[in-house]
Nucleic acid binder design. Structure first.
Lengths: 210, 210, 210, 210
DNA sequence: AATGAATGAGCCTTCATTCAT
DNA sequence: GATGAATGAAGGCTCATTCAT
């Protein structure tokens, strides 16, 4: 983190390992991509990124720390990406479309990271960072609900319970993406979500429009 | 087997261990309910149901065999339950409502089994019974799609791609149920799905109706 | 055993399983041929010959009982075979040749049985039938020594210690056969012992002749 | 490694565990001496040398790794010992005697190690280090054959096939040593090989001399 | 004689974690 | 900050053996 604010070093030897932290996270993601979250083992990570066991512990405290750090990195990246699409949208319907397609495009662009999010959420929720996760999830949902608020007042969208909005809007696209990610492409899995981009966005809009 | 031809014993000793197989599955579910799928341990199961290690292996081959067997038992039970609701429904809209509420009611009635389904699907999909799972999932989806077919012909529902139907119809309710199950009731989780029974069913209908 | 003296049954149903005992031994040999003596497991044998676990125990008492029974069967068969060759030989030199080639031919004719003998001897020696093995080995050695006795008196063979005779006469051929059996033919093992039949017999004779 | 540059500590704590690896091998040999190769158990080794399970795996990878490492250690030690005797011998006959007595003396000096070699060879040959074993055996045999070569040219020894030499020269002494090692001294086993040192060496010479 | 479900001791192996250097 | 040997709890699995039918 500090290094982001430091003046860029000119090929210093420190540079080579400056992002040891990121190397480790990348290695962890690679492990998970190959064998699921359970395959993220200290030794597996070590073998992939060349860091020593001690170094890994220095940066992340313990195994779950790696998984959690990676989870939150990805979670926030996803949120940021979707939010950017939403911010760029003009009007209610376009906004709903942006939520769906922003999510969909992000998943298609980085399937491994998306898969990791699905796989690891349970583990993170069960660990010591439960409150962090609850917080992040709540924050994201609130942003969605808050965005809808003015349009609900104008009557453009139906007057639905806050808790329901995320599931109504994002449920179908998440469901499809999850199914797509878990399918083996080699064995005739589902078509890419991109194929149904318009339909998924449209369905979300139908669920909530007045 | 022989006992089927015998006069029904009243709490005979045979009765006690007659369903050794089911005892084991129940114990496995209890383990999972307490600590997640990873907590389904040979020794944990053994301790809960009194079966010996050898007996467990005799019935299920290996640890994953227990998880998979339990998964399929629950999966089929759920399918049967939803299908029964669907069969009882009159008309298109009622049918769509039945799919959603049938699922929702089943989840609310047996949250532990529902949670197990969500938690273990990935593991089962990654194991040797991948084809069985693909088959079961495909069969279920086909049943849903086939049910819609006549209504699509009459123009009562929109002409949507087959692959999309399950996500459009079931996505929102699954999304909400999943979120509800993963929330800790003690820490102010979401309201029971029952609260939004009508809204969720209605949203599904809006997604697909012409 | 008793059945050998019984009048030959005419395709009675008992006939089918009459040699259950031999079926088991054959299955055990097949196991050993595939994975070494350690691969002779109750379940492996059961799977190969269709006998039930209980039946196997009925016939052999325990696992080691199978191995020992098979060992002695083979051991005696080998002894009988070599002895027959020896009995047919005329003269000292021919006798020594017969001992070597009789052994060699038997090994080449049934390599799996020969391999089993080499592999299992240690286990049998360590088990409860140690005295039986010591007895059988002693008997065989005595037969060899006794055969030499008259020729030693005539001065045709050297006056060597009894305990040494078996190693001097059979050592080389056993050594070569053992090496041949343990080699993987596919990976360029040794030539068949048959190739050096004459040389091995001759070497034995040189070791002991006056 | 660092300790090599340090002043030699006198029974420092580091000294105690300096040869963790060797401690483990010694413990493994002790297990085998007591109950055969099968008795070389991770837990048995651990109990004897105080190393932790993890430490054993750190050094040897798995159980078979211990057995194989010990096997090769002993095998090479034996080869070195015999070779030293051979190098010191003057003339053909003396050389053949040296091969036999060098082997015999090594066996008598360390019967446990010799027994381990006989017992474990099969397991090593069946495992992943098959090529290493084939290599080591081939190298040893080649050394023997190469040593004979000049003497064969001068006509001092007979013109025999290379593959046969090891069995002709070493067969009898190996046969006797094996029998001696497997006999229980308490139950009147064979006399020590030392008793027949001269005879065994002489027999080898007779087998190959011109 | 035969059957096969049940038993449980015993083994191998993995993995997160610690700590001295 | 980094290193990697050492630790030991925990888990999966095999297999000989028993016993009621």
């Amino acid at each position: 983190m500090a290094s982001r604010n430091s003046p860029p070093p000119v090929s210093s030897p420190a540079e080579a390992t400056a992002d040891r932290r990121q190397d480790i996270l990348n290695a962890a993601l690679a492990c998970a991509a190959e064998g699921g979250v359970d395959a993220v083992t200290i030794d597996g990570v070590r073998a992939r990124c060349g860091a020593s066991v001690g170094s890994i512990y220095h940066h992340f405290g313990n195994r779950d720390g790696i998984v959690a750090a990676l989870f939150f990195d990805i979670f926030h990246d996803q949120s940021r990406s979707v939010q950017a699409q939403l911010d760029a949208a003009q009007g209610v319907e376009a906004g709903v479309h942006a939520l769906v397609t922003g999510y969909l495009d992000w998943v298609v662009a980085q399937p491994e990271r998306a898969r990791f999010l699905f796989q690891s959420r349970g583990a993170v929720a069960a660990g010591p960072r439960t409150p962090d996760l609850a917080d992040a999830a709540h924050r994201r949902n609130q942003a969605l609900v808050a965005w809808f608020e003015p349009h609900r007042r104008t009557g453009a969208v139906r007057d639905l319970p806050c808790e329901l909005m995320p599931s109504l809007v994002m449920g179908p696209v998440q469901s499809y993406c999850r199914a797509w990610l878990s399918g083996n492409a080699a064995q005739g899995g589902l078509p890419s979500p991109t194929t149904y981009r318009a339909e998924l966005a449209d369905a979300a809009w139908r669920s909530v429009k007045a």
